[in-house]
C-alpha cells in the first residue's frame, strides 16, 4: 500500500491509539504535526488534527504520555509528547492482542480459508 492510501475511518479508529503510541515509542519525544506526518509516512494515511488531538488528550489523561511545551525557534511553540512506562506497557499488550485479532481475521477472510461452512455458498434453484 502506498503512503497516500485512504483507509476507512472505522478501521483507523480501531488502531490509531496503538499507532500513535508506536510512533512515540520510537522517538524520544514528538509533537502533533510530526506524529501526523509519521503516521502518513508509515502508510496509515493523512490523519487530521481534529482526529489526532482528542486522542492525544485522551492518552495524556490516561497517563500513557507526558507532555512539555517548548518555544519554537522562529516558528510556533510546540507541545512535545513522551511515552511513559505505563504507555509502553499498554502498547505492548494491545499490540499483541491486535496482531492476534488481525491474523485471525485475515485467515478467516481468505477465499481458500479452511473450515468455512458450505451453507454459505449459493445453492442451485430447486427443479420443478
Amino acid at each position: 500500500m502506498s503512503a497516500t492510501t485512504t483507509w476507512p475511518g472505522d478501521w483507523l479508529r480501531g488502531v490509531l491509539e496503538m499507532a500513535v503510541l508506536r510512533v512515540l515509542a520510537n522517538e524520544p519525544a514528538s509533537y502533533g504535526y510530526a506524529i501526523s506526518v509519521a503516521l502518513e509516512r508509515h502508510g496509515l494515511g493523512a490523519v487530521k488534527g481534529g482526529t489526532l488531538y482528542p486522542l492525544l488528550a485522551r492518552l495524556e489523561q490516561a497517563a500513557y504520555v507526558q507532555t512539555r511545551w517548548e518555544a519554537g525557534d522562529g516558528g510556533p511553540g510546540r507541545k512535545y509528547y513522551t511515552i511513559t512506562d505505563s504507555g509502553r506497557s499498554h502498547l505492548s499488550s494491545t499490540s499483541a492482542a491486535w496482531c492476534e485479532f488481525a491474523q485471525t481475521t485475515a485467515s478467516f477472510l481468505r477465499e481458500d480459508a479452511p473450515g468455512i461452512p458450505a451453507a454459505s455458498r449459493p445453492t442451485a434453484a430447486p427443479s420443478r
Binding site: K48, G49, G50, Y53, P76, K79
Partner: peptide
C-alpha cells in the same frame, strides 16, 4: 488546546477548518 491548534495549522499550512 488553542496553542496546539495554532502550531498544527502553522506546521501543516492548513486552515483550522481544514485541519479541525
Amino acid at each position: 488546546a488553542l496553542r496546539q491548534a495554532e502550531a498544527f495549522c502553522a506546521d501543516s499550512g492548513q486552515s483550522p477548518e481544514e485541519a479541525f
